[in-house]
Simulated scan of single mutants.
Amino acid sequence: MLDKKGPDVSGMALTPPASNGTVAVAIQATASDAANGNSNVVAAEYTIDGGAAQAMSVSASAPTASLNATIAQATMNALTAGNHTISIRARDALNNWGTPNTITLLVDKTGPAAPTLVSASPNPNNGTTPFNSSVNAVRMFATLSDAATAIATGEGFIDTLGAQGAGFPFQAVDGVFNSSNEPAYADIPLPTVSLLASGNHTLYVRGKDTAGNWGPATSITLVIDKIGPTISGNVTLTPSATNNTAVAISATASDAANGNINIVAAEYFIDTAGANGTGTAMTVGTAAPTAAINGTISAATVSALTAGSHTVYVHAKDAAGNWGATSSATLRVDRTPPTFSGIT
């Protein structure tokens, strides 16, 4: 049988398929002469962009063999950013070189863009407020994107932007990083958050692409507030003395000196200040660090009180989840009509 055709090359792969020039790249392929004379494959070579040929190893002297080579890191580093053509061919024992086959090597030396849509929730926080009932953490969100390659990972830091790869990891929202635009998240455990001092803290996030490039970071502010609002001025009861009629409660809650974040809730108790969040809800006039709070002791509740003096306790909660200290006013329940004396 006359054999004048060289082996075919297939199954080409590059590891990694994209590089920033800081690591070597492995080349793998398969050469087969089975359809072209069935002679043994004895040699192979590759070129980069048509340059000088470089020898590849051949796994066995057989009609079908694996081909392998490594592009040295120094060679990779010298390549310009962009696409480069890797051409591979093989030779059989009869000295026939096969037709080259090609694969594209991407050199990407630019990292992902600065992350967008960065947020943290819940924020503000007092170190005890979770993202939800099943996630005992403050959750960061960010969108990571890269113009040339897929996103490989992301990382975050608190207060200090550390070395590349040293931060807490981000996860892809869809479960796997495999595209150039990836919504991602990371959870900062509440035990970690609780150790932060009250005040503003900087959260950083940045992404890394599959070529190995880290991009610039984006930062946001996480507010830690561990002190609740105060009741400024007096708690006002209208009327302050009653027999069986409803009583309006009004006061002003302020977080201006304790974190300056919005008032989000308030409650009152009668005679005994109970656990936070177990009182009768009051309305908050506006979402602001200082807000009017109002409530009503219903006529039915007043009717159930004994005659005499009763203490009404009021306090408020801020957006970080802190309940403040109570302030109080006295409500007098009087069901005894006046008497006349000394009539002449």
Results as ranks from 00 to 15, higher is better:
residue 232 S to Y: 01
residue 262 N to Q: 15
residue 105 L to K: 12
residue 88 I to M: 08
residue 150 A to T: 13
residue 327 S to G: 04
residue 31 A to Q: 02
residue 74 A to F: 03
residue 11 G to C: 12
residue 3 D to C: 03
residue 125 N to F: 10
residue 338 P to M: 03
residue 322 N to W: 02
residue 231 I to N: 07
residue 243 N to S: 15
residue 325 A to G: 11
residue 175 G to H: 03
residue 95 N to R: 11
residue 147 A to M: 06
residue 218 T to Q: 14
residue 232 S to F: 00
residue 317 K to F: 01
residue 177 F to R: 05
residue 39 S to C: 00
residue 17 P to M: 06
residue 42 V to G: 06
residue 175 G to R: 00
residue 284 V to W: 05
residue 307 A to D: 14
residue 294 N to D: 10
residue 243 N to T: 15
residue 232 S to T: 15
residue 70 T to H: 06
residue 176 V to E: 11
residue 30 T to N: 01
residue 11 G to H: 14
residue 235 V to G: 00
residue 17 P to I: 00
residue 26 A to T: 15
residue 31 A to D: 07
residue 313 Y to L: 03
residue 293 I to Q: 05
residue 127 G to P: 13
residue 106 L to V: 14
residue 275 A to S: 12
residue 237 L to C: 12
residue 155 E to K: 02
residue 198 S to K: 07
residue 239 P to A: 03
residue 277 G to Y: 03
residue 241 A to C: 01
residue 309 S to W: 00
residue 175 G to D: 07
residue 310 H to Q: 07
residue 160 T to M: 07
residue 336 T to N: 13
residue 309 S to L: 08
residue 210 T to V: 15
residue 88 I to T: 10
residue 80 T to L: 15
residue 61 S to V: 12
residue 67 L to F: 04
residue 159 D to C: 03
residue 143 T to C: 05
residue 132 N to P: 01
residue 121 S to N: 11
residue 46 Y to N: 04
residue 17 P to N: 09
residue 63 P to Y: 01
residue 200 N to D: 15
residue 303 S to D: 09
residue 188 I to G: 02
residue 33 D to E: 06
residue 168 F to Q: 05
residue 234 N to I: 04
residue 242 T to Q: 10
residue 77 N to T: 01
residue 4 K to W: 09
residue 9 V to S: 07
residue 285 G to C: 12
residue 310 H to G: 06
residue 83 N to F: 12
residue 91 R to M: 15
residue 55 A to K: 14
residue 165 G to H: 10
residue 3 D to P: 00
residue 170 F to E: 04
residue 243 N to K: 12
residue 9 V to R: 03
residue 104 T to I: 09
residue 90 A to I: 14
residue 303 S to W: 00
residue 332 R to I: 15
residue 54 Q to R: 14
residue 178 N to T: 10
residue 295 G to A: 06
residue 79 L to Y: 02
residue 199 G to L: 04
residue 159 D to I: 09
residue 116 T to K: 10
residue 80 T to S: 15
residue 300 A to R: 00
residue 34 A to H: 02
residue 182 E to L: 04
residue 329 A to H: 03
residue 113 A to I: 12
residue 267 E to K: 02
residue 184 A to Q: 02
residue 331 L to R: 07
residue 300 A to E: 11
residue 266 A to C: 04
residue 321 G to S: 09
residue 12 M to A: 05
residue 341 S to E: 10
residue 322 N to H: 05
residue 103 I to H: 01
residue 125 N to L: 07
residue 204 Y to K: 08
residue 19 S to A: 10
residue 98 G to N: 11
residue 279 G to L: 10
residue 288 A to L: 10
residue 66 S to L: 06
residue 202 T to G: 03
residue 120 A to I: 08
residue 68 N to H: 11
residue 20 N to I: 05
residue 320 A to T: 11
residue 279 G to M: 06
residue 8 D to Q: 14
residue 311 T to Q: 06
residue 39 S to F: 06
residue 148 A to P: 00
residue 292 A to D: 07
residue 38 N to F: 04
residue 97 W to L: 13
residue 60 A to G: 00
residue 294 N to Q: 13
residue 327 S to Q: 10
residue 96 N to G: 04
residue 61 S to M: 10
residue 182 E to T: 07
residue 259 G to F: 12
residue 328 S to N: 13
residue 104 T to D: 01
residue 146 D to G: 06
residue 59 S to R: 03
residue 56 M to E: 09
